[in-house]
Design a protein around this nucleic acid. Sequence first.
DNA 1: ACGCTTTTCTACCATATGGTAGACAGCGAT
DNA 2: ATCGCTGTCTACCATATGGTAGAAAAGCGT
Lengths: 199, 199
Amino acid sequence: MVTRRGMTRSAILEASVDLFGSRGFSAVSLDEIAGVVGVAKQTVLYWFPSKDELLDAVLEQTALELAAVIEAAVRSAPDEPLARIEAVIKAVLRPAVRRPALLGLVREVSRLSPDHAARLTDQVRPFVRRATDYLGEEMANGRLRMADPGLVVALAYATVTGIATEPTALQAVEWQATTTGLRRLRRELTEFLLAALRP
Amino acid sequence: MVTRRGMTRSAILEASVDLFGSRGFSAVSLDEIAGVVGVAKQTVLYWFPSKDELLDAVLEQTALELAAVIEAAVRSAPDEPLARIEAVIKAVLRPAVRRPALLGLVREVSRLSPDHAARLTDQVRPFVRRATDYLGEEMANGRLRMADPGLVVALAYATVTGIATEPTALQAVEWQATTTGLRRLRRELTEFLLAALRP
DNA sequence: ACGCTTTTCTACCATATGGTAGACAGCGAT
DNA sequence: ATCGCTGTCTACCATATGGTAGAAAAGCGT
Protein backbone atom coordinates (compact mmCIF):
# COMPACT_ATOMS: atom_id res chain seq x y z
CA MET A 1 0.00 0.00 0.00
CA VAL A 2 1.97 2.95 1.26
CA THR A 3 5.55 1.68 1.31
CA ARG A 4 7.39 4.62 -0.15
CA ARG A 5 10.93 3.65 -1.03
CA GLY A 6 12.43 0.64 0.71
CA MET A 7 10.55 1.28 3.91
CA THR A 8 8.84 -2.10 3.97
CA ARG A 9 11.94 -3.93 4.98
CA SER A 10 12.63 -1.79 8.00
CA ALA A 11 8.98 -1.83 9.02
CA ILE A 12 9.09 -5.61 9.01
CA LEU A 13 12.25 -5.55 11.09
CA GLU A 14 10.75 -3.18 13.61
CA ALA A 15 7.53 -5.15 14.00
CA SER A 16 9.53 -8.36 14.33
CA VAL A 17 11.67 -6.94 17.13
CA ASP A 18 8.55 -6.03 19.05
CA LEU A 19 6.77 -9.31 18.47
CA PHE A 20 9.71 -11.68 18.88
CA GLY A 21 10.95 -9.72 21.86
CA SER A 22 7.68 -9.63 23.72
CA ARG A 23 6.15 -13.00 22.96
CA GLY A 24 9.03 -15.12 21.75
CA PHE A 25 10.19 -16.27 18.35
CA SER A 26 8.11 -19.37 17.87
CA ALA A 27 4.94 -17.86 19.28
CA VAL A 28 4.85 -15.31 16.45
CA SER A 29 3.78 -16.27 12.95
CA LEU A 30 4.80 -14.65 9.72
CA ASP A 31 1.14 -13.91 9.11
CA GLU A 32 0.98 -11.93 12.31
CA ILE A 33 4.05 -9.90 11.46
CA ALA A 34 2.65 -9.21 8.02
CA GLY A 35 -0.64 -8.17 9.58
CA VAL A 36 1.06 -5.67 11.87
CA VAL A 37 3.04 -4.20 9.01
CA GLY A 38 -0.05 -4.15 6.81
CA VAL A 39 1.30 -6.34 4.06
CA ALA A 40 0.89 -9.87 2.77
CA LYS A 41 2.91 -12.69 4.21
CA GLN A 42 4.67 -13.19 0.92
CA THR A 43 6.09 -9.70 1.12
CA VAL A 44 7.78 -10.64 4.34
CA LEU A 45 9.21 -13.71 2.65
CA TYR A 46 10.34 -11.54 -0.24
CA TRP A 47 12.54 -9.41 2.01
CA PHE A 48 13.65 -12.27 4.23
CA PRO A 49 13.79 -15.65 2.53
CA SER A 50 12.79 -17.56 5.65
CA LYS A 51 11.67 -16.99 9.20
CA ASP A 52 15.10 -18.00 10.40
CA GLU A 53 16.85 -15.42 8.27
CA LEU A 54 14.39 -12.82 9.45
CA LEU A 55 15.37 -13.71 12.99
CA ASP A 56 19.04 -13.36 12.18
CA ALA A 57 18.46 -9.93 10.73
CA VAL A 58 16.39 -8.89 13.72
CA LEU A 59 19.05 -10.05 16.15
CA GLU A 60 21.80 -8.32 14.28
CA GLN A 61 19.95 -5.03 14.12
CA THR A 62 19.03 -5.11 17.78
CA ALA A 63 22.60 -5.83 18.80
CA LEU A 64 23.85 -2.95 16.69
CA GLU A 65 21.26 -0.54 18.11
CA LEU A 66 22.04 -1.43 21.68
CA ALA A 67 25.77 -1.33 21.10
CA ALA A 68 25.46 2.14 19.63
CA VAL A 69 23.45 3.39 22.60
CA ILE A 70 25.94 1.97 25.08
CA GLU A 71 28.91 3.20 23.10
CA ALA A 72 27.56 6.75 23.06
CA ALA A 73 26.80 6.67 26.78
CA VAL A 74 30.28 5.51 27.65
CA ARG A 75 31.94 8.11 25.44
CA SER A 76 29.90 10.97 26.83
CA ALA A 77 30.65 10.09 30.47
CA PRO A 78 33.75 11.22 32.38
CA ASP A 79 36.64 8.81 32.76
CA GLU A 80 35.46 7.27 36.02
CA PRO A 81 34.04 3.75 36.14
CA LEU A 82 31.13 4.41 38.47
CA ALA A 83 30.06 7.45 36.46
CA ARG A 84 30.30 5.44 33.26
CA ILE A 85 28.25 2.62 34.68
CA GLU A 86 25.63 5.09 35.77
CA ALA A 87 25.59 6.62 32.31
CA VAL A 88 25.13 3.24 30.69
CA ILE A 89 22.24 2.37 32.97
CA LYS A 90 20.58 5.65 32.20
CA ALA A 91 21.08 5.21 28.48
CA VAL A 92 19.89 1.63 28.35
CA LEU A 93 16.94 1.95 30.67
CA ARG A 94 15.17 4.59 28.62
CA PRO A 95 14.80 2.59 25.40
CA ALA A 96 14.41 -0.61 27.40
CA VAL A 97 11.36 0.62 29.25
CA ARG A 98 9.88 2.40 26.27
CA ARG A 99 10.32 -0.70 24.17
CA PRO A 100 10.62 -3.71 26.46
CA ALA A 101 10.92 -5.97 23.47
CA LEU A 102 14.44 -4.74 22.76
CA LEU A 103 16.02 -6.41 25.76
CA GLY A 104 13.37 -9.09 25.67
CA LEU A 105 14.75 -10.12 22.32
CA VAL A 106 18.26 -10.32 23.68
CA ARG A 107 16.98 -12.51 26.46
CA GLU A 108 15.21 -14.68 23.94
CA VAL A 109 18.51 -15.74 22.46
CA SER A 110 19.13 -18.43 25.03
CA ARG A 111 15.98 -20.23 23.89
CA LEU A 112 16.92 -20.30 20.23
CA SER A 113 18.99 -22.76 18.29
CA PRO A 114 22.68 -22.80 19.16
CA ASP A 115 23.33 -21.49 15.65
CA HIS A 116 21.53 -18.23 16.20
CA ALA A 117 22.94 -17.85 19.67
CA ALA A 118 26.45 -18.42 18.40
CA ARG A 119 26.10 -15.84 15.65
CA LEU A 120 24.96 -13.23 18.11
CA THR A 121 27.56 -14.15 20.70
CA ASP A 122 30.29 -13.73 18.12
CA GLN A 123 28.97 -10.35 17.15
CA VAL A 124 28.82 -9.14 20.73
CA ARG A 125 32.06 -10.66 21.92
CA PRO A 126 34.34 -7.66 21.18
CA PHE A 127 32.10 -5.38 23.23
CA VAL A 128 32.02 -7.82 26.11
CA ARG A 129 35.76 -8.15 25.87
CA ARG A 130 36.27 -4.43 26.10
CA ALA A 131 33.91 -4.13 29.05
CA THR A 132 35.64 -6.96 30.86
CA ASP A 133 39.08 -5.53 30.27
CA TYR A 134 37.97 -2.09 31.39
CA LEU A 135 36.47 -3.35 34.62
CA GLY A 136 39.55 -5.44 35.27
CA GLU A 137 41.80 -2.40 34.93
CA GLU A 138 39.66 -0.25 37.16
CA MET A 139 39.58 -2.97 39.79
CA ALA A 140 43.35 -3.03 39.73
CA ASN A 141 43.29 0.75 40.05
CA GLY A 142 41.17 0.40 43.16
CA ARG A 143 38.27 2.29 41.67
CA LEU A 144 36.01 -0.79 41.72
CA ARG A 145 35.53 -3.62 44.15
CA MET A 146 37.93 -6.47 43.47
CA ALA A 147 36.15 -9.32 41.73
CA ASP A 148 36.07 -11.50 38.63
CA PRO A 149 35.52 -8.94 35.86
CA GLY A 150 33.83 -11.34 33.49
CA LEU A 151 31.31 -12.52 36.02
CA VAL A 152 30.67 -8.97 37.17
CA VAL A 153 29.83 -8.02 33.60
CA ALA A 154 27.46 -10.96 33.37
CA LEU A 155 25.87 -10.12 36.72
CA ALA A 156 25.32 -6.49 35.87
CA TYR A 157 23.88 -7.51 32.52
CA ALA A 158 21.58 -10.00 34.22
CA THR A 159 20.35 -7.40 36.68
CA VAL A 160 19.58 -4.77 34.08
CA THR A 161 17.97 -6.99 31.48
CA GLY A 162 16.17 -8.95 34.15
CA ILE A 163 14.58 -5.92 35.71
CA ALA A 164 13.77 -4.36 32.36
CA THR A 165 12.17 -7.43 30.88
CA GLU A 166 10.12 -8.83 33.69
CA PRO A 167 7.06 -6.72 34.13
CA THR A 168 5.58 -9.69 35.95
CA ALA A 169 8.18 -9.46 38.69
CA LEU A 170 7.76 -5.72 39.03
CA GLN A 171 4.04 -6.16 39.16
CA ALA A 172 4.43 -8.70 41.93
CA VAL A 173 6.10 -6.07 44.11
CA GLU A 174 3.37 -3.61 43.24
CA TRP A 175 5.50 -1.35 41.12
CA GLN A 176 3.66 1.15 38.93
CA ALA A 177 4.80 2.10 35.46
CA THR A 178 4.25 5.81 35.99
CA THR A 179 6.77 8.55 35.42
CA THR A 180 7.68 8.71 39.08
CA GLY A 181 7.73 4.93 39.22
CA LEU A 182 10.21 4.92 36.39
CA ARG A 183 12.40 7.49 38.07
CA ARG A 184 12.38 5.51 41.29
CA LEU A 185 13.24 2.34 39.42
CA ARG A 186 16.17 3.99 37.72
CA ARG A 187 17.43 5.39 41.00
CA GLU A 188 17.15 2.08 42.82
CA LEU A 189 18.76 0.16 39.98
CA THR A 190 21.64 2.61 39.85
CA GLU A 191 22.24 2.54 43.58
CA PHE A 192 21.96 -1.22 43.62
CA LEU A 193 24.60 -1.67 40.95
CA LEU A 194 26.89 1.04 42.25
CA ALA A 195 26.74 -0.40 45.75
CA ALA A 196 27.57 -3.80 44.30
CA LEU A 197 30.59 -2.46 42.43
CA ARG A 198 32.04 0.23 44.67
CA PRO A 199 35.38 -0.67 46.20
CA MET B 1 5.23 -48.86 28.89
CA VAL B 2 6.65 -48.88 32.40
CA THR B 3 4.43 -46.39 34.27
CA ARG B 4 3.87 -48.12 37.54
CA ARG B 5 1.13 -46.48 39.58
CA GLY B 6 0.25 -42.90 38.82
CA MET B 7 3.77 -42.05 37.79
CA THR B 8 2.84 -40.97 34.30
CA ARG B 9 1.36 -37.70 35.42
CA SER B 10 4.42 -36.60 37.32
CA ALA B 11 6.71 -37.75 34.53
CA ILE B 12 4.77 -35.54 32.13
CA LEU B 13 5.03 -32.63 34.53
CA GLU B 14 8.76 -33.07 34.91
CA ALA B 15 9.43 -33.30 31.21
CA SER B 16 7.23 -30.27 30.63
CA VAL B 17 9.13 -28.17 33.14
CA ASP B 18 12.37 -28.98 31.35
CA LEU B 19 11.05 -28.39 27.86
CA PHE B 20 8.92 -25.31 28.53
CA GLY B 21 11.62 -23.84 30.71
CA SER B 22 14.45 -24.31 28.29
CA ARG B 23 12.84 -23.67 24.94
CA GLY B 24 9.64 -21.81 25.71
CA PHE B 25 6.01 -22.83 25.89
CA SER B 26 4.98 -22.43 22.29
CA ALA B 27 8.14 -23.95 20.89
CA VAL B 28 7.33 -27.27 22.50
CA SER B 29 4.66 -29.57 21.09
CA LEU B 30 2.63 -32.12 22.94
CA ASP B 31 4.08 -34.75 20.67
CA GLU B 32 7.55 -33.84 21.83
CA ILE B 33 6.62 -34.03 25.49
CA ALA B 34 4.96 -37.37 24.89
CA GLY B 35 8.07 -38.56 23.09
CA VAL B 36 10.32 -37.64 25.99
CA VAL B 37 8.06 -39.35 28.49
CA GLY B 38 7.74 -42.37 26.21
CA VAL B 39 4.02 -42.27 25.82
CA ALA B 40 1.42 -41.34 23.20
CA LYS B 41 0.26 -37.77 22.86
CA GLN B 42 -3.23 -38.77 23.89
CA THR B 43 -1.94 -39.92 27.24
CA VAL B 44 -0.69 -36.41 27.88
CA LEU B 45 -4.11 -35.09 26.95
CA TYR B 46 -5.69 -37.62 29.25
CA TRP B 47 -3.88 -36.26 32.31
CA PHE B 48 -4.09 -32.64 31.24
CA PRO B 49 -7.13 -31.79 29.14
CA SER B 50 -5.30 -29.16 27.11
CA LYS B 51 -1.87 -27.70 26.61
CA ASP B 52 -2.93 -24.63 28.54
CA GLU B 53 -4.00 -26.61 31.56
CA LEU B 54 -0.75 -28.53 31.41
CA LEU B 55 1.06 -25.22 31.53
CA ASP B 56 -0.93 -24.11 34.54
CA ALA B 57 -0.08 -27.31 36.38
CA VAL B 58 3.58 -26.96 35.45
CA LEU B 59 3.71 -23.38 36.68
CA GLU B 60 2.01 -24.22 39.92
CA GLN B 61 4.29 -27.12 40.67
CA THR B 62 7.41 -25.12 39.88
CA ALA B 63 6.32 -22.28 42.12
CA LEU B 64 5.64 -24.66 44.96
CA GLU B 65 8.99 -26.40 44.56
CA LEU B 66 10.94 -23.16 44.53
CA ALA B 67 8.98 -21.75 47.42
CA ALA B 68 9.73 -24.85 49.47
CA VAL B 69 13.45 -24.61 48.73
CA ILE B 70 13.56 -20.94 49.68
CA GLU B 71 11.45 -21.45 52.76
CA ALA B 72 13.75 -24.19 54.03
CA ALA B 73 16.84 -22.09 53.37
CA VAL B 74 15.46 -19.11 55.27
CA ARG B 75 14.40 -21.21 58.23
CA SER B 76 17.73 -22.96 58.54
CA ALA B 77 19.75 -19.71 58.47
CA PRO B 78 20.46 -17.56 61.53
CA ASP B 79 18.35 -14.48 62.17
CA GLU B 80 20.55 -12.09 60.25
CA PRO B 81 19.47 -10.69 56.87
CA LEU B 82 22.78 -11.03 55.06
CA ALA B 83 23.22 -14.59 56.24
CA ARG B 84 19.69 -15.41 55.16
CA ILE B 85 20.22 -13.92 51.74
CA GLU B 86 23.37 -15.91 51.36
CA ALA B 87 21.54 -19.05 52.36
CA VAL B 88 18.80 -18.41 49.83
CA ILE B 89 21.29 -17.87 47.04
CA LYS B 90 23.05 -21.07 47.93
CA ALA B 91 19.80 -23.00 48.07
CA VAL B 92 18.43 -21.63 44.83
CA LEU B 93 21.57 -21.77 42.76
CA ARG B 94 22.09 -25.48 43.19
CA PRO B 95 18.81 -26.65 41.64
CA ALA B 96 18.89 -23.70 39.24
CA VAL B 97 22.18 -24.72 37.71
CA ARG B 98 21.45 -28.41 37.77
CA ARG B 99 18.13 -27.80 36.11
CA PRO B 100 18.22 -24.43 34.34
CA ALA B 101 14.71 -24.94 33.12
CA LEU B 102 13.31 -24.36 36.60
CA LEU B 103 14.06 -20.66 36.68
CA GLY B 104 13.77 -20.50 32.91
CA LEU B 105 10.17 -21.43 33.32
CA VAL B 106 9.59 -18.67 35.83
CA ARG B 107 11.14 -16.26 33.40
CA GLU B 108 8.89 -17.55 30.65
CA VAL B 109 5.87 -16.28 32.49
CA SER B 110 6.19 -12.76 31.18
CA ARG B 111 5.74 -14.07 27.63
CA LEU B 112 2.57 -15.94 28.35
CA SER B 113 -1.00 -14.80 28.33
CA PRO B 114 -1.94 -12.37 31.09
CA ASP B 115 -4.19 -15.08 32.47
CA HIS B 116 -1.38 -17.48 33.22
CA ALA B 117 0.82 -14.71 34.50
CA ALA B 118 -1.89 -13.47 36.82
CA ARG B 119 -2.54 -16.90 38.26
CA LEU B 120 1.13 -17.35 39.08
CA THR B 121 1.53 -13.83 40.42
CA ASP B 122 -1.36 -14.37 42.79
CA GLN B 123 0.14 -17.60 44.01
CA VAL B 124 3.52 -16.04 44.65
CA ARG B 125 2.30 -12.77 46.11
CA PRO B 126 2.29 -13.80 49.79
CA PHE B 127 5.92 -14.88 49.56
CA VAL B 128 6.92 -11.67 47.89
CA ARG B 129 5.01 -9.76 50.50
CA ARG B 130 6.83 -11.46 53.32
CA ALA B 131 10.20 -10.89 51.70
CA THR B 132 9.44 -7.24 51.15
CA ASP B 133 8.26 -6.72 54.72
CA TYR B 134 11.28 -8.49 56.09
CA LEU B 135 13.75 -6.43 54.09
CA GLY B 136 11.90 -3.27 55.07
CA GLU B 137 12.22 -4.10 58.76
CA GLU B 138 15.88 -4.93 58.52
CA MET B 139 16.55 -1.71 56.65
CA ALA B 140 14.88 0.16 59.48
CA ASN B 141 17.06 -1.81 61.90
CA GLY B 142 20.12 -0.63 60.01
CA ARG B 143 21.17 -4.15 59.08
CA LEU B 144 20.60 -3.51 55.35
CA ARG B 145 21.24 -0.55 53.09
CA MET B 146 18.30 1.85 53.08
CA ALA B 147 16.29 1.45 49.86
CA ASP B 148 12.88 0.65 48.43
CA PRO B 149 12.31 -2.90 49.72
CA GLY B 150 9.98 -3.91 46.90
CA LEU B 151 12.39 -2.85 44.20
CA VAL B 152 15.29 -4.46 46.00
CA VAL B 153 13.41 -7.75 46.02
CA ALA B 154 12.76 -7.38 42.31
CA LEU B 155 16.38 -6.48 41.61
CA ALA B 156 17.80 -9.38 43.58
CA TYR B 157 15.35 -11.69 41.84
CA ALA B 158 16.35 -10.32 38.46
CA THR B 159 20.03 -10.82 39.19
CA VAL B 160 19.70 -14.40 40.35
CA THR B 161 17.29 -15.61 37.72
CA GLY B 162 19.10 -13.66 35.04
CA ILE B 163 22.46 -15.19 35.79
CA ALA B 164 21.03 -18.66 36.24
CA THR B 165 19.04 -18.68 33.04
CA GLU B 166 21.33 -17.07 30.53
CA PRO B 167 24.00 -19.53 29.58
CA THR B 168 24.52 -17.39 26.50
CA ALA B 169 25.63 -14.44 28.60
CA LEU B 170 27.92 -16.55 30.71
CA GLN B 171 29.35 -18.09 27.60
CA ALA B 172 30.02 -14.63 26.20
CA VAL B 173 32.29 -13.88 29.16
CA GLU B 174 33.98 -17.24 28.73
CA TRP B 175 32.63 -18.83 31.83
CA GLN B 176 32.96 -22.59 32.09
CA ALA B 177 30.35 -24.83 33.61
CA THR B 178 32.83 -26.87 35.59
CA THR B 179 32.71 -27.54 39.29
CA THR B 180 35.19 -24.79 40.05
CA GLY B 181 33.38 -22.51 37.64
CA LEU B 182 30.18 -23.12 39.54
CA ARG B 183 31.83 -22.40 42.86
CA ARG B 184 33.30 -19.18 41.50
CA LEU B 185 29.94 -18.16 40.10
CA ARG B 186 28.26 -18.74 43.42
CA ARG B 187 30.91 -16.77 45.27
CA GLU B 188 30.75 -13.85 42.87
CA LEU B 189 26.97 -13.80 42.87
CA THR B 190 26.89 -13.84 46.65
CA GLU B 191 29.44 -11.07 47.01
CA PHE B 192 27.70 -9.04 44.35
CA LEU B 193 24.36 -9.20 46.11
CA LEU B 194 25.74 -8.77 49.60
CA ALA B 195 27.73 -5.73 48.50
CA ALA B 196 24.58 -4.32 46.92
CA LEU B 197 22.58 -4.79 50.12
CA ARG B 198 25.02 -4.14 52.95
CA PRO B 199 24.34 -0.97 54.88
C1' DA C 1 -14.90 -65.45 35.53
C1' DC C 2 -17.12 -61.07 35.11
C1' DG C 3 -18.19 -56.45 35.23
C1' DC C 4 -16.57 -51.66 36.23
C1' DT C 5 -13.14 -48.17 36.30
C1' DT C 6 -8.80 -46.32 35.04
C1' DT C 7 -5.30 -45.76 31.78
C1' DT C 8 -3.28 -45.89 27.24
C1' DC C 9 -3.41 -46.19 22.39
C1' DT C 10 -4.95 -45.97 17.32
C1' DA C 11 -7.13 -43.62 14.08
C1' DC C 12 -8.83 -39.10 12.50
C1' DC C 13 -9.78 -34.02 11.93
C1' DA C 14 -9.56 -28.94 11.44
C1' DT C 15 -6.59 -25.49 11.45
C1' DA C 16 -2.37 -22.83 11.41
C1' DT C 17 2.00 -22.26 9.55
C1' DG C 18 6.26 -21.83 6.78
C1' DG C 19 7.18 -21.88 2.20
C1' DT C 20 6.72 -22.26 -3.34
C1' DA C 21 5.03 -20.72 -7.96
C1' DG C 22 3.72 -17.53 -10.56
C1' DA C 23 0.73 -13.59 -11.89
C1' DC C 24 0.24 -8.57 -11.70
C1' DA C 25 1.46 -3.72 -11.00
C1' DG C 26 4.53 0.28 -10.95
C1' DC C 27 8.23 2.50 -13.16
C1' DG C 28 12.53 4.06 -15.28
C1' DA C 29 15.24 3.62 -19.55
C1' DT C 30 15.35 3.01 -24.39
C1' DA D 1 5.00 1.61 -26.54
C1' DT D 2 7.67 -1.82 -24.55
C1' DC D 3 11.27 -4.22 -22.19
C1' DG D 4 13.07 -5.33 -17.83
C1' DC D 5 13.33 -4.84 -13.00
C1' DT D 6 11.47 -4.40 -8.42
C1' DG D 7 8.07 -5.11 -5.19
C1' DT D 8 3.59 -6.96 -3.81
C1' DC D 9 -0.10 -10.00 -4.14
C1' DT D 10 -3.23 -14.33 -4.93
C1' DA D 11 -3.40 -19.17 -5.05
C1' DC D 12 -1.67 -23.27 -3.36
C1' DC D 13 0.85 -26.99 -0.80
C1' DA D 14 2.92 -30.08 2.73
C1' DT D 15 3.39 -30.52 7.22
C1' DA D 16 2.86 -29.95 12.16
C1' DT D 17 -0.12 -29.31 15.84
C1' DG D 18 -3.83 -29.21 19.34
C1' DG D 19 -7.70 -31.75 20.03
C1' DT D 20 -11.85 -35.43 19.44
C1' DA D 21 -13.89 -40.21 19.32
C1' DG D 22 -13.68 -44.35 20.54
C1' DA D 23 -11.41 -48.89 20.77
C1' DA D 24 -8.25 -51.92 23.47
C1' DA D 25 -5.73 -53.00 27.64
C1' DA D 26 -4.94 -53.23 32.51
C1' DG D 27 -6.37 -53.44 37.13
C1' DC D 28 -9.38 -54.61 40.64
C1' DG D 29 -13.21 -55.77 43.63
C1' DT D 30 -16.69 -59.40 43.81
